[in-house]
Design a protein around this nucleic acid. Structure first.
Lengths: 251, 251
DNA sequence: CGCTAATTTGAAGGTACTCAAGCTTCGTGG
DNA sequence: CCACGAAGCTTGAGTACCTTCAAATTAGCG
């Protein structure tokens, strides 16, 4: 299923970017906004379940997530899948494909997503003309690495319960930082198979672990999704100190 | 144990950088070399076992590895350790600390290391004056992410045997790309505890897994180190396709 | 030559996996 | 409106993998 491009109708001009104004996201200078307006070539709307970027592809695009949930993953030949990280509004995706020859992972939408599309061949121009934006991109790449480090620590060294608690605490905090948490609760559009493939567990064991979390009141499983109910229980169970509160750049 | 700075005696001027000339590393332009000469503030020699960078520290430095082996790791409060990746000649370390507020992982030397030291506060200047070098840094950050993706896939979804085989195939190929493999064999200065903390396994099970690998002739365990004997057996056992052969930038 | 650190081995137990079947929910079509 | 099928969630049983505990062996280092 190919995603539909909606480049003709540009719902969100950069000056009215829906990402503006979140206290956790750093605002842009005026000149930067006008450059980004040209860097941006359109918008992409992807339905839930759509593969936005495919491993091995030499994609001509670079995206910033404007709304919705997605995930990055890799698979082995025999089909075993590992979810590497999730993507939320404000995240830059496809940088690997733009900088190196090709993507080494795929990205799929968990919910309907709106993406801001950039033309990858203008990236060298960005580096030449806007060193601050180039610095921001490197910042974003470093942040991704930092998240991966913590996820790897989790999968390698935390118990199944700690891992699960960490995952939901992590997603809750990330969602909160971009205004997706309203009444201290959050619904994440996941199947249990996604959770299993994130934690490196079987689906059966994942189910039993999630049940324990819900008994403790940390979350509740819905049809096709998970409602996070108690961030503090999750933080405590995972022995995780939480995300830094510093604002981050976006493109 | 503090590492000793040897900034007075600069063994390796940039024009005679020991990393030059490897077919897997991209050469620099003349102007870049002269800029890097100023960006470089000295050299650091670290003994095996030295902690080069500490989690939580706000290090003023950024390093490129000139020689030796090291590893990046994170720990949980109760001491459980996860090795995230290894660092080899040509690798840039400390970028996270330079770009963001502080380091979220530590780095320790596995063998004696020589590091090229850069002053972090000159980094914005690099972005302003040498966009190509800035692009290279982003390239390097993307490569680190790509390696982490594969390692996470391994820890999350490969069996103990596949994981171990992947690890040694991976380290063998990386070492080969910077001329550390002479006669198709390589000695990696590891303890089994390092292997265990990389694979997310206990030391006992790691030992039994390594024994199976050595029975198959893939490697041999030495005192305080591992000799990799057969890359092809490892590649086959791990179901891994190997690293791309494209040359990469370094700073 | 003895001490310490690292590796090796065996045994017992727990965690997580596979297999298998039942249940719930939702969408579709008769 | 209800029957039906498909997809996802849940549960139980048996097994395999991996862990912990404990002790023996080996390998440097002074």
């Amino acid at each position: 299923m190919k995603p539909t491009t909606a480049s003709a109708a540009r719902q969100y001009p950069c000056a009215k970017c829906p990402l503006q104004g979140f206290p956790h996201l750093q605002p842009h200078e005026k000149e930067e906004v006008s450059f980004l307006s040209e860097f941006k070539t359109g918008e992409l709307v992807a339905d839930a379940g759509t593969t936005v970027l495919v491993e091995g592809a030499n994609s001509a695009h670079l995206f910033t997530v404007l709304s919705g949930w997605g995930f990055r993953y890799k698979t082995l030949e025999d089909g075993r899948r590992q979810i590497l990280n999730y993507v939320l509004p404000g995240d830059l995706i496809g940088l690997q494909g733009s900088i190196m020859k090709e993507m080494a992972h795929s990205i799929e939408a968990l919910s309907p997503m709106i993406l801001c599309v950039f033309q990858r061949d203008k990236l060298p121009n960005l580096f030449r003309s806007f060193p601050n934006l180039a610095y921001d991109i490197t910042w974003i790449a470093s942040r991704e690495e930092q998240m991966l480090d913590e996820i790897l620590l989790s999968v390698g060294r935390r118990t199944a319960m700690e891992r699960a608690a960490y995952l939901f605490a992590f997603l809750f905090q990330r969602a909160k930082s971009v205004g997706m948490v309203k009444t201290n609760k959050l619904i994440i559009p996941l199947k249990q198979q996604h959770v299993a493939d994130t934690l490196g567990l079987s689906i059966v064991h994942t189910n039993k672990t999630l049940k324990k979390l819900s008994v403790r009141g940390a979350l509740r499983w819905l049809d096709r999704g998970c409602e996070v109910l108690d961030e503090n229980v999750l933080l405590e169970m995972s022995k995780w100190q939480g995300l830094p509160a510093t604002p981050r750049p976006y493109i």
